[in-house]
Nucleic acid binder design. Structure first.
Lengths: 104, 104
DNA sequence: ACTTACGGTAAGCTATGACTTACGCCGCCG
DNA sequence: CGGCGGCGTAAGTCATAGCTTACCGTAAGT
């Protein structure tokens, strides 16, 4: 059920922008904060959320902390979506639907 | 960029639960509302969000409105995720990272 | 050892989002 | 045609998420 946290993390535009930056490779907090209107602490908070969601990991390099995409986190989400998508495709095109009398 | 709305819609647990119910096939609002603690109008509001996000579509059947998963909406999300995932996999395992002196 | 760069944490503010109740519209059946 | 079941919408309330400023630890350089 880890995908829940991931989805909630991905819901925020700023966090998606951060991920977008990280697509090109690992970045330090300072680098990530550049180009955003928001303050650096705000970025730090977003990074925390992304980490907790399993979408990022950190490695300290000297005084800096370098963040990086974590494929495993995305993989779980992928599975969830793929699954849901497949069920959706099963196309219950029936204009009719399960009888209302059935409590299910 | 439609996936943005979809992600925001998927962030809510109740909405995911609704989708979960719809995996088994189309359902009317009343059917969907059953089993939730929250009021039926609340469910209606969630359904609106999901529709606007392109994840659901509706077909009126008599006095009822039957909701159904919309594969196309999920597909876009799938592409986004798949893409991001692929980039993440490219494994920038470098303990080093782009020189901080470079403003990028 | 002092100083500076880097970045996480705390506390407080505000906007947004999820819920409720109340209401009105529409399709159906007696 | 009147009553009813089924749902969407409006208005108002309350909690939470995201932002800010202020502060503190830690690593590196001189």
């Amino acid at each position: 059920m880890t995908y829940a946290a991931a989805l909630q993390a991905l819901a925020d535009p700023t966090r998606r922008a951060i991920l977008e930056k990280l697509r090109h490779g690992p970045r330090s907090v300072g680098q990530l904060a550049q180009g955003f209107q928001i303050s650096r602490p705000a970025v730090s908070q977003h990074l925390r959320v992304l980490c907790c969601a399993g979408l990022l990991d950190v490695v300290p390099v000297g005084a800096r902390r370098v963040y990086r995409l974590r494929p495993e986190g995305l993989a779980q989400l992928r599975v969830y979506l793929e699954d849901l998508w497949r069920d959706a495709l099963r196309g219950f095109d029936a204009p009719e639907f399960p009888a209302p009398r059935d409590g299910t």
